[in-house]
């Protein structure tokens, strides 16, 4: 398997009024093509910082990030994002359709093709026929589906999600997790997801990266050897699932 994303000896420091804050220390990790990788770790450890480096929104203090072997400067091509705060990442002044259409403008598609992308991505997330609504006319779960549709519409090779399901209720969360599994099965997009929910990480991932320490380093990379397809009830009752979640949990808490 080839590495889609290579994180090479990345360190990140922030200048603050009380001196330099060293957040990430010498992180190295390769994300394989078509893999689903979760990043877990205690609050404030630097997960969002790592994702922001990956999306090219910030430059690492040292080290580099490569996509397909090329060092990134700025957001890499073929990237899509889904953030926790859907109310702030969708534009209230545009309909769902127009929200989805906006990132497509870079690709200079024709009218018909744009339409087709919007329709098919809305259908993929189960929102067919709602494209004319404004985000604030929809429930939180629907808005997050719309953000996922926006991501899919660009036909990304890399999908980055920062706690995408942290702001929805438990039932919606299960539905959205299964939606992500379906998307993964349909498109095989290389995905990096930050989550606080260790069960969710185990349920969705091929690999889990555990960040720990101050400054944070990669404490462990856990391979989730549970076969696909997975299902909420069976997978979560699987003995391997229980072992893995216990193991990851202990590492996040620094117990192991």
């Amino acid at each position: 398997m080839t590495a889609e994303i290579s994180i090479r000896n990345v360190s990140m420091e922030f200048p603050t009024p009380d001196g330099v804050k060293h957040v990430l220390n010498d992180i190295s990790y390769d994300v394989n093509q078509h893999h689903f990788v979760s990043i877990v770790g205690p609050s404030g450890v630097g997960k969002t910082t790592l994702l922001r480096l990956l999306t090219g929104l910030m430059k690492p203090t040292s080290g580099e990030i490569q996509v397909h072997g090329e060092r990134i400067s700025g957001a890499p091509k073929g990237l899509a994002v889904v953030l926790q705060d859907y109310t702030r990442s969708l534009m209230p002044w545009l309909t769902i359709e127009k929200n989805i259409a906006l990132p497509l403008r870079n690709q200079k598609l024709g009218k018909a093709e744009t339409r087709e992308r919007i329709e098919s991505s809305l259908e993929e997330v189960g929102l067919s026929g709602t494209g004319g609504n404004y985000p604030w006319q929809m429930s939180g779960g629907m808005q997050q589906r719309a953000s996922i549709a926006r991501a899919l519409a660009v036909r990304p090779t890399i999908l980055v999600m920062d706690e995408p399901f942290a702001s929805v209720d438990a039932q919606t969360r299960f539905d959205l997790e299964d939606l992500v599994l379906k998307v993964r099965a349909d498109f095989g997009i290389t995905t990096l997801m930050v989550t606080h929910d260790i069960d969710e990480a185990v349920y969705l991932s091929d690999e889990i990266v555990v960040l720990h320490g101050r400054p944070a380093g990669v404490r462990d990379v856990v391979v989730v050897d549970i076969p696909f397809p997975r299902s909420q009830i069976e997978t979560r009752n699987d003995q391997r699932f229980t072992e893995l979640r216990t193991h990851v949990y202990a590492m996040v808490r620094g117990l192991e």
Binding site: R52, T55, G56, L57, G74, A75, K77, L79, A80, V81, L83, D85, R88, S89, M91, W93, L94, L102, P103, R105, N106, V154, V160
Partner: peptide
């Protein structure tokens, strides 16, 4: 909103689009 601007940058939308669709509204 910085979250909105970050989202737009991640989708590689230029400064003009950011002004038109995020800053002005």
């Amino acid at each position: 909103d910085p979250v909105l601007l970050d989202t737009m940058r991640a989708y590689r939308q230029g400064i003009v689009t950011q002004i038109r669709y995020a800053r002005l509204p």
